[in-house]
Design a protein around this nucleic acid. Structure first.
Lengths: 263, 263
DNA sequence: AAGTGGTCTAGACCACCTA
DNA sequence: AGGTGGTCTAGACCACTTT
C-alpha cells in the first residue's frame, strides 16, 4: 500500500508467502501482473482445465489488491477465452477447444490503412435493371434500377481484391455519387461519408474464382478464395448496399489462437 | 425505462433535464441502460462517426452515476466496436467498416455441445511413416512415425464434417490412446483429457472437396467448403497434433455484424 | 494547466448457486 | 446460510494529450 516516488526500501521477500507478488511500484498495472500470474498457473497446470479458480475476493485478499482489481485481472483472462465466469458458482478454466476461436480481419484493415500503396481501377460502373435476387435483397419492386460498381483494388501494384457492389438507385441519395466516384480509393465501405449507414452484416464464404475474376486478379481460374459478402442498412433499416469482395487467403490470412500464448 | 416490481413511487420527470435517464430502480443495470442511450445517440447521428463522445466524467455527472459506471457503459460500446478510446484525447465514434468484423465459430460450438446428436465414424486409424511435410511441422527426424486418424462426424444422422488428425507418435504419451479411442465422440479436440495441450493455432482456408471427401460427406465433388486447420502444442511448446476439418459453409455459417443492431 | 482516459481503493448491496 | 460473481459508489492518483 506504499506510495511511489523514491521508495527504494529493500522490498524483502515475504517469507510467509509461497506465491508470486504484485509489485505496485512497477509500471505494469497490478491487474495485468495478477492476470499474468493466474495465466501462468493455468498454463503450468496449477489451475487445471475444468477446475475452479480461487474466488475473486480470495484472490484479492491473497495478493493484497482490492476486489475490483482482482476482478479486472480475471476479466483479462475472460477476454482471452482462458476462463469462464458463472454467477454464483465461480470462475472455471476453459478447456482448449477449436470452437472458441475467433477470426478477425486485421490483415485486411492493415492493407486498407496504407492508402498510399493502394490503387483502384473501376471495371464497370452502371445503372441497370435489378435481378430478381437483388430486388429481394433490397426489397424493391421488380424491374427497379440498381447501381452496379465493379472494382479491382491493387496493393503495391498487385491485384489485391475484386469487388462487386450494388446499391439502391435513389437519385436523392448520396450513395450513388459515392459509388461512382472514381477518386475514392478504397471504395464505399472504407471511407468517410457513410454516416448514411447504420449497420452492416457480413458473411464469409469459400469459393473458386471464375475466368472473369481470374483475369482481373491475375490468378489461376479455379483457385480457392474467400468471398466476403456484405450488406449495409441505412438509417431507415433498409438494405441499401450489397456486394462482395473476392480475396485470396494469401492476402487475407485468417488465423486464430487459443490457449496460453504469452509467457 | 419504467419501474420494476411494485415501486410506484411517483418519480417525476426532471423538467430541468433534456435527456433520457438512467433508472436505478430498474433490473437493467445502470451501465447497460447508459450504454443503450449512448448507442442510440450514435445510431441516430447525435454522435456522428469520427466525433468525440462526451468525456466519461461528464457523462457520469450528467446521468448521475459514478465515473466507474459511466466507464463501464463506454466499455460495452468499445467491445461492440462502436467506439474507440484514446488515452488523453477522448473516446471517438468508429466509422462503419468491413474490416472491424470478427467471425466466431459459435455455430460449430453449438453443434458439438449436443453430443447426443453426434456420431463419429472412424475412417482410418493407423501409425505410419511421416511425410516430409509432417516431419517439418512436428520437428521430427525423417522417417519418424505419426499417428493418423480420419473421422467423419455425423450430426443428426447427416455427415457434418470430415476430420483428419495427425499426432506425434510417442508411446509414452496419452495422446495416442486418446486419438485411437473410438469411444470419444467428438475427438481429440473437443473432449476432456487434453490438459496435455497448452495452446493451439488455427487457420481458416477456402477449398474444394475431392472425390474421397465427397464420398464421406455425401456431397458433390468440387463443392466449395472451409478447411479449418489446427495445430496444437503441448506443455513443452512442441507441436504435437496437427489436422483439419472439412466443413461446408451451410453447416458452419460465418457471419458478423458491424454498427448498431440492438435498438 | 486543464482535460482526458487508465488504474485503484475500500467499502457496499444484489442475484445466483450450493449446501 | 454462506460463498460466488455482478454491479455500484465516491473518492483518489496517474499518464497522456491538448491548450
Amino acid at each position: 500500500m506504499e506510495k511511489s516516488g523514491f521508495d527504494l526500501s529493500g522490498n524483502e521477500p515475504d517469507i510467509f508467502s509461497d506465491q508470486e507478488k504484485v509489485d505496485k511500484q512497477s509500471f505494469v498495472p497490478a491487474y495485468a501482473q495478477l492476470a499474468a500470474i493466474i495465466r501462468r498457473r493455468i498454463s503450468d497446470g496449477t489451475y487445471a482445465p475444468g477446475s475452479r479458480l480461487p474466488s475473486e475476493s480470495a484472490t484479492a485478499k491473497s495478493f493484497g489488491v482490492s476486489a475490483m482489481t482482482a476482478r479486472q485481472a480475471v476479466g483479462v483472462l475472460v477476454e482471452e477465452g482462458l476462463v469462464n465466469r458463472v454467477q454464483g458458482r465461480g470462475t472455471f478454466v476453459n478447456r482448449l477447444e477449436v470452437t472458441t476461436s475467433n477470426f478477425g480481419l486485421d490483415s485486411l484493415r492493415k492493407v486498407f490503412q496504407q492508402q498510399e500503396k493502394l490503387e483502384v481501377r473501376i471495371i464497370k460502373a452502371t445503372i441497370e435493371a435489378a435481378s430478381t435476387g437483388l430486388c429481394e435483397i433490397f426489397g424493391l419492386a421488380p424491374e427497379s434500377s440498381v447501381v452496379l460498381v465493379e472494382r479491382v483494388i491493387y496493393y503495391e501494384k498487385a491485384p489485391f481484391t475484386y469487388q462487386v457492389g450494388y446499391a439502391r438507385f435513389d437519385p436523392e441519395s448520396p450513395i450513388v455519387e459515392t459509388m461512382l466516384d472514381t477518386d475514392v480509393l478504397t471504395g464505399l465501405f472504407f471511407e468517410k461519408g457513410h454516416s448514411s449507414f447504420m449497420k452492416g452484416e457480413l458473411r464469409l464464404l469459400p469459393t473458386t474464382i471464375d475466368s472473369r475474376e481470374a483475369e482481373y486478379l491475375q490468378a489461376p481460374e479455379g483457385e480457392n478464395v474467400f468471398k466476403l459478402e456484405h450488406i449495409f442498412y441505412d438509417f431507415n433499416n433498409t438494405p441499401s448496399a450489397f456486394g462482395w469482395f473476392i480475396i485470396s487467403p494469401d492476402k487475407m490470412p485468417l488465423t486464430s489462437r487459443v490457449g496460453v500464448w504469452n509467457e
